[in-house]
Design a binder for these strands. Sequence first.
DNA 1: CTGAAAGCGCTAACAT
DNA 2: ATGTTAGCGCTTTCAG
Lengths: 338, 338
Amino acid sequence: MSSRVTIADVARVAGVHAGTVSRALNQKTENQVNHETLARVRQAAKQLGYAPNSIARGLRTNSSMTIGVIIPDLTNPIFPPIVRGIDSRLAVRGYSAVVVNTDGSDDAERLLFESLVQRQVDGLIFATGHSGHSIAGEAFDRDIKAVMVNRDSGGVPYPAVVGDDAEGIKASLRHLAALGHRRVMHLEGPPSFSTSRIRAEAFVSGCAELGLDGHVVPCAAYSVEAGQSAMDDVLDSKVTARPTAVVAGNDLLALGVYHSLRLHALTCPGDVSVVGFNDMPFAGDFQPAMTTVRTPHFEMGAESARLLLEQIDGSQLSALKITLPVELVIRESTGPAR
Amino acid sequence: MSSRVTIADVARVAGVHAGTVSRALNQKTENQVNHETLARVRQAAKQLGYAPNSIARGLRTNSSMTIGVIIPDLTNPIFPPIVRGIDSRLAVRGYSAVVVNTDGSDDAERLLFESLVQRQVDGLIFATGHSGHSIAGEAFDRDIKAVMVNRDSGGVPYPAVVGDDAEGIKASLRHLAALGHRRVMHLEGPPSFSTSRIRAEAFVSGCAELGLDGHVVPCAAYSVEAGQSAMDDVLDSKVTARPTAVVAGNDLLALGVYHSLRLHALTCPGDVSVVGFNDMPFAGDFQPAMTTVRTPHFEMGAESARLLLEQIDGSQLSALKITLPVELVIRESTGPAR
DNA sequence: CTGAAAGCGCTAACAT
DNA sequence: ATGTTAGCGCTTTCAG
């Protein structure tokens, strides 16, 4: 299995020494070698089907050309585009990504982190939600290069790439206000995600600015079930007045609201308007087509990889935060208040 | 960055030789070492925060504990569950997956294949669709361990894990026949995917068995656009009679049919019933909720990883094909023929 | 049971 | 411009 032919074989065939072959076959050093010999080495390498063993190279150069990507769950639809964005930047530089899933477990995150470190990853991209003390602090203490994506840095001085969540929420609110809504509700994601707090805060201040009667309801998870359960509680409650519109913390939560509404024989947007967040794939094919905030996930991934590569290239680590613009996509889940 | 402390440090602290530390810290050899020394070594290792450098180990043992996974595109919703299934089996054995996306390009596939081989992956999982000559043949010639998932082996003697596509299509047809449909159509995926052929053939023979008037229309890709375009052509045609039901090659194609129907002011399932394939996430939330064939993607991934690990463990490579059962999920996109 | 020594395949510092 | 040498951190013979 795998590469039988080594640099020594190439050296023998080309009639030069191993060191020369190494120099000839590396971009940065190939100009240190005579044109003729270079040609001879290349010829020999091709003839033998030589491919460098990157494990051996990594041992010597102390770099694995591998980046670890820590996410909660690949099957959450926002992550595939983020991962592809990351990969798009990594690939052109010869890096590969190893992506691992924590499923929201701190223990799993710690274990996976350790395993990535053992693998000598050259850097890490954190896409887990923890706003509190995640493993990031430890990574920083251990001098590991990293960036955050879709979450703030939680006090750790790593760069972070996020969407403009606050603006997304406010745009949703303006849209709703223009439709005549006054009694609005926000389904807030779990507090462990920095995005939850930011969106909830933007909701509160946005309501104040627009003179809306806003109410925040916390959800246990960013999931359809959690959204449905939270909305069920609201609709079953005799004390809370039913809102005419809900701004969900993300699309999954919004989908939960759809389910709850259907269960309660209420229509959307007839009885209640719903706005999601993320514009997950196929959000426009839901029933009804979902009005939601589009977040540039691919670009966020790409940008985070760029920042990480910069660190690896030796640029000074600056704890900057890059905020990418979002866009409200109006479809059919929002309509006039009645 | 990364592990400063080496086996030599541990050896020094424990007062033993590096070789002994290595033996003590490896499952397979730890019984070759005295209880006392073992304890001392472990203590020293913990105290120093030692973690083995898996690059160095890999160079020596000629194994990277890494598996390459080649897929067309992570953002295609069937792949995240497959990848997680793979990972679930790999992780418990200490392997990691490096997943790469070909975007359907043969050139990209070849390049990515080479880069994975250079990385000394211990095995490969092919989830690309090629039924013709993909890179798999070359992998086999080079003695690389591999398995196929969600595609047949295309003549290469690797094991393959697939869903029972033929049965899924036939179950769809039986369902449609029971609803009174007679004039049915199949939207076939591109010929480069083995799944396309299998599903189309099952459609044809299923129609024959049930006495249905079946018609197969090829699509350029497994995408919403391709499905819509194919259906547009059918609906715009004055020569072909409109089918009362369509069995799409996958959910994306089915979604394209939804779009086309809407564009032509036709209803589903009122005017045309639609059945998808795969039961992609949130298929039940589409408009209308999609009747489709559920394929056990996670299990397929897990099973393929199991088969690969078996090969790596030295079991004889058997070109077996594992077919996992599928299930027709009846929702709201199918109804009585009229 | 443990020490000694070799070497996986490669790169980089040092010679020439 | 190229040869020589050392060694990255680990495992694994081979002795003892």
